[in-house]
Design a protein around this nucleic acid. Structure first.
Lengths: 201, 201
DNA sequence: CAATTAAATGAACGTTCGTTAAATTAATCT
DNA sequence: AGATTAATTTAACGAACGTTCATTTAATTG
């Protein structure tokens, strides 16, 4: 028995990414074998090579997809004129986007070290692009005299860490609604840059 | 050739932990072989089993040591009466402690998933103990009417994430002194809980 | 000094890994 | 309907893994 009835390559290729993402996030890239991924998809390990040249390319695809989607999603957000509104929008966007993709987020932070040189460089650049969004907003606010961030770089990194940290404790269906969580984080971030008024979006 | 001239078991055992910590942090627990650790120490892989029964016990030892040291170090800090002072002390402590131990910190966040059940439970409990420090301080402040943290649990997790995030960008010998970094983080954290005054310790 | 203990090496086991290539079956094309 | 392409399985390779155990050498003990 070889080709399975009803098999569609593009569907298998997608399933490989989906299952690999789950498994890598759960156990770590190096700890997950191609046989495990294949089993989760419902094929044999060698079938994976029909779709991806090697294990590393699966990880690179996952991280690239995640970063590209993230950056595109942000690009589709409405642009705000003033820094405070932009920061609030960014915080809400980040929380909303990240808590709905726990595995991808986890991977994108934890498996950079599993990337080989070229893949690492590409992903790292995209991460910096995202970090620069926060940095730009903070610099803007500082220039406007709205924020008290004396070091926008540090502040941006601190805020991003705070926001992404939501993924370590948030469980969908938990005690707090997504809206409430956004509100809490907006409040803290605004406070951290010296703003005290929180306006509901 | 078997036992080496001048070998001292306790020194080898310590070197195994030190090198394993570096390698695990750099490449990930699952990606590092016992042969790699042994080579870094300057012995053969089988020598490791003289000191640790298996690979997992090395990781457990590393994480236990880290958590125990952290908790003990905090226990040795002076106690503050009011919440604002306690929070400032906690922030400064956390930054100071964590930036001087990048590998251990990285491991303690990234390799929980590599722990087997019993080890995981032990380490997780210690982590919660540490998290509860922040939570208690925040609850205290909220009770005092000093902090505006409406949800001390979320705020604690957010603050801890922010603080620990320092390890993702900080490089010793960088542009900023440790004192300056502490000051920046204190400012942000205080702001995030509704305090605006920053008092130098 | 001989016996005992400590601390390592060397050899090897059984297992698992990422991967390749030939073979097999299904779907599509002409 | 036969040829071609797609998508998988099967079988297997070479390498590497965590670990065990007998042996070897060094240090300590009585």
């Amino acid at each position: 028995m070889a080709r399975k009835v009803g098999s569609v390559g593009s569907i298998t290729a997608e399933a490989i990414l989906t299952q690999a993402c789950k498994l890598f996030a759960r156990f770590g890239y190096a700890a997950v074998s191609m046989r495990q991924i294949a089993a989760a998809v419902g094929v044999q390990a060698s079938a994976i090579y029909q779709h991806y040249p090697n294990k590393q390319e699966i990880l690179v695809a996952l991280l690239n997809n995640h970063m590209d989607s993230l950056l595109e999603a942000w690009n589709n957000e409405v642009r705000d004129e003033d820094a405070a509104a932009a920061l609030e929008r960014f915080v809400r966007f980040h929380i909303r986007y990240h808590i709905s993709r726990p595995d991808e987020v986890f991977l994108s932070y934890m498996e950079l070290r599993s990337l080989e040189d070229q893949g690492f460089r590409i992903i790292e650049r995209k991460r910096h692009t995202y970090e620069n969004i926060a940095k730009t907003i903070l610099r803007h606010g500082a220039d406007e005299g709205t924020f008290s961030a004396s070091d926008p770089h540090v502040a941006a990194m601190a805020i991003l860490a705070m926001l992404t940290g939501v993924n370590t404790w948030y469980r969908s269906g938990g005690r707090l609604s997504q809206q409430k969580i956004e509100d809490l984080y907006v409040g803290m971030v605004m406070g951290s840059v010296g703003l005290t008024a929180v306006t509901k979006a």
